[in-house]
Design a protein around this nucleic acid. Structure first.
Lengths: 253, 253
DNA sequence: CAACAAATGTGAGCACTGCTCTTGACTTTC
DNA sequence: GAAAGTCAAGAGCAGTGCTCACATTTGTTG
C-alpha cells in the first residue's frame, strides 16, 4: 500500500503537474526571500510576480491568495526550524539529557537570530487579517515542543528528572486536547512536569524573542551569548534536569 | 522653578495650540481604536481621517506620517500598561514582595489579554518598515521592567531574596548601559540576581505571549488562569522570592 | 475693524497593494 | 484536426501612504 505522498495521488505526475509544482516551488522560494528581507506583513504578491518575471495576476493560478502563500511560508519555516532542532538534538547521545536540552535551545536561538523575520512570522504578533489554518500548520508547528516534551519524558523515564519542589508542585488541569497528545506520544511524564515543560518552553521563547525583536534596548547586555547560556542553565534547572548525572560529564559548553 | 511640562514651553498655550493638541488627541484616540480592532500593521491613516470626518491629507498637518502615529500609539500603550502595573503593585503593602510580584505579572497578563493588538505592537514582531525611536520610547517602554527590578531590589535589601543556587550563580557581564541604569536606580541587587530578573521578565513575557498570540494551539490547556498562576509561582521561585516570609502570610489565592 | 499671515482643510495625483475578470495564446487529449 | 484544458496578459476596481497647489478659515495685529 504505497502511501508516500501527502494526498491520494495514485497516478504519476504528468509533465504539466511537474511544471506546475516547480513554479509553486519558485514562488515559495522567492516569497521566502522577500519574507526574510522585508518581513511578513510586507510580503507582496506583486513583488514576487515581478521577481518571477511574470505579470501579477499570473501567480494567482498557482497560489489562491496572499494568505495561501503565507501558509506555505509558515509551514516551510516551521519545518526548517524543526529540521535544525532535530539535527542538533540527535547529534548528542540519547542519554545526555542536559546536553540535548542545551542543543535544542541553542538551535532555536540560532535559527531565530539568522531568520528574524521568519521567526516573527512563527512566534510574533499575528499578521493582520491572517489566520493560520490549524489543520495544515499544527503538524509542523508542534515539532519543537514535541521534541522538548520527548526529551523531558526520556529524562523522566530514566529517573533523571527531579520532581518539582516547592509551590510549583501544584496539579495543573490539562485539557482533553493535551491529554490526547500525551497519550498519543506515549509520554510517561506526569501533569506537573508537563506544565513545567510548558513554562520552560514559553520561557525559552520569551528570552529568544526579546533578543530577536530587540526588546532589550539598544545594547543592554554586553554578551548576549553568555546571558543566553545562563538562561538556558537556569531553565534546565527549572525543568528538573540534573547535569551531574550526564554520561559525558560536564558539558564542554 | 516650575518645570512641570515636558518641553521648555515658557509661554502659556494659545487657543490655536490648544485646538491643535485636541485634534492630535482625537487622532491618537481614533488610532487606538483602529489599532485595537484591526492590529498594528493594518493601521490606516486614511481610515483615521475618515473617522475624524476630514480628508486624508489633512491629518498630515498634525502627524508627520504613519510611523509618527505608530510611535504615539506605542508610547500611549506603554504608559497605559505602566499605569496599570504600578497601580496593581502599589495596592499591596511594600513588604509583601511575593504578592507584589504576583500582582505585577497578573496585571501585565490582564492588560495583554484585554488589548492583544496593542500588546502585539509592544512585544510582538516588529511592524515592517517601522523602527521605534529609542529616544522617545525607551522611557515609557522600560517602566514595567523597572518596576520588576525595583521590586526585586527591595526584596534583596530586606534580605528576602535567596541567592541563586546551582549552576545559575554564574556571573553575567553587564553592558555599561545596564550598569548605568543600575547606578541611576540605586539598585543594590548584584549582577547575578539582575540577570535572573531579566530571565524572569522574559519568561513572563513568553508565557503571556503564547497565550495572547494563540501559540498554545486551539485550547491545549483547559484552565489558562490556573496554568498562569502555576507559572507565576514557579517564576517567583526562580527569582528567589520566598513567600513564607510575607507579612500577610499566605496570599489569599 | 480691517488687513495680514499663519494655520488648516481640500482635492487631484502618483505609486503601490490585493484581487477579479476578460481575452488571447498555447498545450494536451480525444 | 478539433475539442478541452491550461496559462499568461492586461485592464480595472478599491484600497493604501504621501505630496502638492490651491482655497478657506482663524487668530493676531496695525
Amino acid at each position: 500500500m504505497p502511501q508516500n505522498p501527502s494526498l491520494p495521488s495514485t497516478k504519476p505526475p504528468t509533465p504539466r503537474e511537474r511544471a506546475r509544482a516547480r513554479t509553486i516551488e519558485d514562488i515559495v522560494r522567492l516569497g521566502r526571500e522577500h519574507l526574510a528581507l522585508h518581513g511578513a506583513a510586507a510580503l507582496s504578491l506583486r513583488a514576487v510576480a515581478r521577481d518571477l518575471g511574470v505579470v501579477s495576476s499570473a501567480v494567482y493560478r498557482y497560489v489562491e491568495n496572499r494568505e495561501e502563500l503565507l501558509t506555505l511560508l509558515l509551514i516551510d519555516a516551521y519545518n526548517e526550524l524543526g529540521d535544525e532542532v532535530d539535527a542538533a538534538v540527535a547529534a548528542l547521545p540519547e542519554a545526555d539529557f542536559s546536553g540535548r536540552f542545551n542543543a535544542l535551545g541553542s538551535a532555536v536561538r540560532r535559527w531565530a537570530l539568522r531568520e528574524p523575520a521568519r521567526y516573527g512570522l512563527l512566534f510574533g504578533s499575528p499578521v493582520p487579517g491572517y489566520r493560520a489554518p490549524a489543520e495544515r500548520t499544527t503538524g509542523p508547528g508542534t515539532r519543537v515542543i514535541y521534541a522538548l516534551m520527548a526529551l523531558l519524558d526520556g529524562a523522566y523515564r530514566a529517573g533523571r528528572l527531579a520532581a518539582p519542589g516547592g509551590r510549583a508542585a501544584v496539579a495543573v488541569p490539562l485539557a482533553a486536547d493535551l491529554e490526547r497528545i500525551r497519550a498519543g506520544m506515549g509520554l510517561a511524564v506526569p501533569d506537573g512536569l508537563l506544565a513545567r515543560g510548558a513554562l520552560v518552553w514559553t520561557s525559552l521563547f520569551g528570552a529568544i524573542s526579546f533578543e530577536v525583536f530587540g526588546q532589550y534596548g539598544a545594547d543592554t547586555f554586553a554578551a548576549p551569548e553568555e546571558l543566553f547560556a545562563h538562561h538556558l542553565a537556569a531553565l534546565a534547572d527549572l525543568a528538573g534536569l540534573d547535569p551531574s548525572a550526564d554520561p559525558a560529564g560536564r558539558r564542554p559548553e
